[in-house]
Design a protein around this nucleic acid. Structure first.
Lengths: 251, 251
DNA sequence: CGTCCTCCTTGATTTATGTTATCGCGTCAG
DNA sequence: CTGACGCGATAACATAAATCAAGGAGGACG
């Protein structure tokens, strides 16, 4: 039994990266998590902040974003329970982007001055975090490809594939669906499209029988078809256990 | 005097991230660099490779890219002397993208089995590398914004700003110009535009008196104007010494 | 139980950018 | 010298996606 219930999501996440010893698990459970409930659409960190702590998502969905001078927004990534989206603030003083909640979320804040010596004392966990930030970067690269070179249709399909696989990897998605409190405007900001065009394209994906997305629930109706539409290959996610062996429905 | 002339670019790069001790400098100079000349347009690593070494750029320009099934290409980043673009291969087995030369280049290959214990023995250098990969990720984020939300005009201007600042930071650009053996097709693949439109937009930037780009030389004629056109802010590059104090021309 | 407010939907029109095609120039191999 | 080739420049035309505009559905809340 772990001492700290809040450690659950982080442990689950880290176990997808490295196999932890019991000592390491205990050490993580011993960290002082200060949990807080955050409402939907709230900023956790803002661009240009100089945070002195990191945010561990315990429950719910968050996203990173940047705003342009003319008010346009670009969403950079989506994050789920077990993620520490601003881990980088340990090494980079100034936030170059914001972090906000999608729906309501539960978040634990961990002070840098705790995390730094902790990682120093546990080099394997430190390596796991390094590996995680490298996977983060790999996902950013794929997003560059997505917004740079794919059609609206493939682009949206690709985003849906990615989220499905990532959520399944940590057990947060059922065999063919997952909860996702995202609006079409947010999908637009994640794909570099307009909200209107996201609506039209989503309708198209629905009409082709690939997905169903309504009332914060995403249903994957034709997983192979969705991957084909997206040109999705999971390599860039660098999963320890590929989706097929991971419970994602075969067909 | 350093023992190994090949270590120069890497030392210069690392010094922009941390201040090294003499012992650390000597240790780096003691690494066994196997230098090789590579012609223009050659692959250094391919997508899906499982490299057992990292590439240190000693001289010249390289870029990372991905190919899509339909033959489209997206360039993900440009790299210069001192960079180790595939450092991530230390932690992520499979390459999720390729690495190729722009013009002719000189490259040193360093085996993983040398680099791993080396970083273990020199935690401050290891931290510097971690910080560098985090800055890499920050640049990818800005590229997502660039291709996702900026007009062709701003987008191209932004790419030029970024390269100018990055090259100045390591002393590879003069006060208002730098060598850059890039073709318009490559600029297109980096910005998610078509080569034809890059040509048009470049002409526009030239006509506005912001830049001049010909015969592999990029001249910044109106640095402030170029930044304004791009909406460029250097924050995301996380430089130790900001451009102004860094020798970039004031006007 | 109605009313506000978000979010979704759909249609008409515009526009930025892509596509296709052609031409000129410089370089380089034979 | 000359032909081939890669690259840059331009023009004509095509189109994906943005923008503008108006409803409509469903929750939240008094």
């Amino acid at each position: 039994m772990i001492a700290n219930a809040h450690a659950g999501p982080l442990l689950r996440k880290l176990e997808t990266i490295v196999t932890l010893t019991q000592g390491e698990r205990d050490a993580i459970a011993g960290l002082p998590f200060m949990a807080r409930e955050i409402k939907a659409g709230q900023d956790l960190v803002r661009e240009h902040d100089r945070p002195s702590q990191c945010c561990l998502i315990l429950e719910g969905h968050t996203f990173r974003y940047k705003l342009l001078a003319d008010g346009k927004r670009q969403i950079l990534s989506f994050h789920i329970a077990g993620d520490i989206p601003d881990l980088q603030s340990l090494h980079l003083r100034i936030m170059d982007h914001g972090l906000a909640t999608l729906g309501a979320a539960r978040v634990a804040f961990i002070p840098h001055e705790i995390l730094r010596p902790f990682l120093h004392a546990h080099p394997r966990i430190s390596d796991a975090f390094w590996r995680d930030t490298l996977i983060d970067a790999a996902i950013f690269r794929e997003w560059v490809v997505n917004v740079g070179r794919r059609s609206a249709y493939s682009r949206l399909a690709h985003l849906l594939c990615e989220n499905f696989v990532r959520m399944r990897a940590v057990g947060l998605a059922g065999p063919g669906s997952f909860e996702w409190p995202v609006t079409q405007e947010q999908l637009a900001d994640a794909t570099g499209l307009s909200a209107v065009h996201v609506n039209r394209t989503l309708t198209e994906l629905r009409d082709h029988g690939l997905i169903d997305l309504a009332r914060h629930k995403m249903v994957v109706k034709d997983w192979q078809g969705l991957q084909d539409a997206a040109g999705f290959e999971h390599t860039y996610l660098h999963l320890q256990t590929p989706p097929e062996e991971n419970g994602t429905m075969a067909s």
